[in-house]
Design a protein around this nucleic acid. Structure first.
Lengths: 202, 202, 202, 202
DNA sequence: CATGAATGAGCGTTCATTCAT
DNA sequence: TATGAATGAACGCTCATTCAT
């Protein structure tokens, strides 16, 4: 079996694992469930992943990568700061909606890693994720302030923390309560922040 | 043993459980650990709580109650909207800092409830918690708009979702990365929002 | 349950374990088998022994202790060296016969400990066991040489190694082949050695 | 591939297996380890041996054959009985030293065969091995008694059992404790026995 | 009421063996 | 003939829960 086949099978297993983890949570998922979902033997899982936790971590990484790759385009400096902010927030809303179920896996993973060797790995992963998201936001604000488009009387780094937190928390709220109106919330957030940040509103 | 004694012992157990859950996480905590921490026999735990999960839920409830009771004073309508908002945010920052470790328990609980009967209970609990927090924020905004103190061109409910989310997400960021500057972030958030919301800034 | 009861139960488990180990060998014995033999639940075994290996080691220790305690009386200096040697050899033959089945457990234990943490423990145990047996033999020879009863032209320590080895190997031969005539072999061995060692044979 | 090649490869596998069994013991050796050691695929092992146990048995047979072939020359009737005995014992000491590590494999094999179909096979093998060694010793003694060189007041068969046992047990002691002085022990044993057995010592 | 010994369901993991290529 | 991916039976161990004292 060549590398391509192995990669394909690994992906199949990852897909299966993700599906089961989303459905049942990490703790209640048995390795056998994943094997069944992937339509392979239980032992096969261990041909591709060292342990249940390693598999979980791989799923987690994949989710982070998916999110990060969706945010890549937002690194571009095209448009005014306001436009960039709007695009970013709009993308944030979209990701939040699309990844609702995966939220569960991320939180699950966190719980599973408590008191493990994995805990630090998870923490590092999240910390650098947060840092990346914050820098994404902060950069737009700084660019805007530098170019004179945005009010310099606001703290880009401080705001970045809260903005990233807001989207994070929005995901949690949505996960637990699907009646939350993401569009409306993000629209309000965008408008209010732009109102404060943009010097020339008219 | 009278009701008072029972209540005292229950509280002792709750304290012990909370301490251990914070330390080790739900999954890695054994009922025996809690019994040891509370200095009682393992069987005694079951005299006061139906199951490990019931005990966990009780701990969770207590955390929510603690937070809610801290937020009670913010229901008062004393002061301008700006002042009320500032007080609320400042209190939010304080609670966030104080409850960092308990964050872990809440998330743990969530993970533990996945696929359980408890899941719905947990979800309901969170949903009403979120609703309460949102209404707290929204009310201040509505009051301010009604009194003419705040700009009416902002959506109170939409903003409330994001503001609550922001404090929620702030707790998560802080939990994973203690280097996050809560004061600074909340100060920036407060200033920027007030800037946009308050009609008379000077 | 008091200490006495615990000790009794531990002994029950040890008995059961020994019986099963003798019957099936360490590798093929499941903890469940031992539990069944002792008429307790599987978990109960773990209340008294940390692991299957710990239980095995305890069985092993007990066998060693049984043998050592049987040999205790032979430490006495009553009688001539010839008599002491004859008594010791006779006891050796008796133990060999009585412990045939337990031989299996000892060898099994050895095999099970290969590459384990237990390996060193086992080795130490055996090494000090061998040393004890050798000193038992050597002392009798030395005493005899000192008192002039035994021929001084023989190396007590060198002989002790081979005599202990002979009884050890006798056990192995008997274990594998029950037709070995222990009495006759030991009698011949005793006579021949005394012949060489004792100065006044007539 | 012709028969020669097959035989060569079989030997390669046997070598590899022996090396790994010595290193890790039977229980902790995986078939994959042997394949790796022999630099072949895992499946190839099964082309040459029916099972892990069959392979183990083959290794065991080879060890026995090695020992037996080393002892072949001792069947010769050259020299006095005393000389033959001395040669045999000296050879025994040499083999004991050289086969220390293989001792481990033999005992391992024994443990592995417990409760198997192999058990009887192993037992038979050992029993005939013991018988061969004993006859080797007994024959020398009988020859000596017949020729009048050795004291007839000793039981050749009885002694043979103990002498074979002594070398067996010597191997065990040496395996577990490398500080055992094989030379000295065998020398003492040889001298003492000859002292008793030989009629004309001066 | 309090206890902690007893219990056994449940699960992660290993690894000898098979078999399609 | 050689391979190594796939398999699943097997087993040690944990720990929430029960219940006799």
């Amino acid at each position: 079996m060549n590398t391509l086949d192995r990669e394909t099978k690994r992906t199949t297993l990852l897909d299966a694992a993700m599906a089961v983890f989303v459905r049942k949570g990490f703790a209640r998922t048995r390795v056998a469930d994943i094997a069944t979902e992937a339509d392979v033997g239980k032992g096969t899982v261990y041909e591709y992943f060292a342990s249940k936790e390693a598999l979980f971590f791989a799923v987690f990484e994949r989710i982070q990568e998916d999110i990060a790759s969706e945010l890549k385009p937002e690194l571009s400096e095209i448009g005014t700061s306001r436009e960039r902010l709007q695009r970013l927030f709009s993308k944030g809303a979209e990701i939040t909606r699309r990844q609702v179920e995966n939220q569960a896996v991320v939180l699950d993973f966190w719980a599973a890693s408590r008191g493990n060797l994995l805990e630090e790995q998870f923490r590092d992963f999240c910390v650098s994720g947060f840092a990346f998201y914050r820098s994404l936001v902060a950069q737009i604000l700084i660019d805007g302030q530098t170019s004179g488009e945005l009010n310099p009387n606001h703290d880009p780094e401080g705001l970045a923390v809260m903005i990233v937190a807001a989207f994070d928390g929005l995901g949690a709220q949505l996960y637990l309560d699907r009646s939350v109106d993401v569009e409306r919330a993000v629209a309000a957030f965008t408008n209010t922040l732009c109102d404060a940040l943009c010097l020339e509103d008219e």
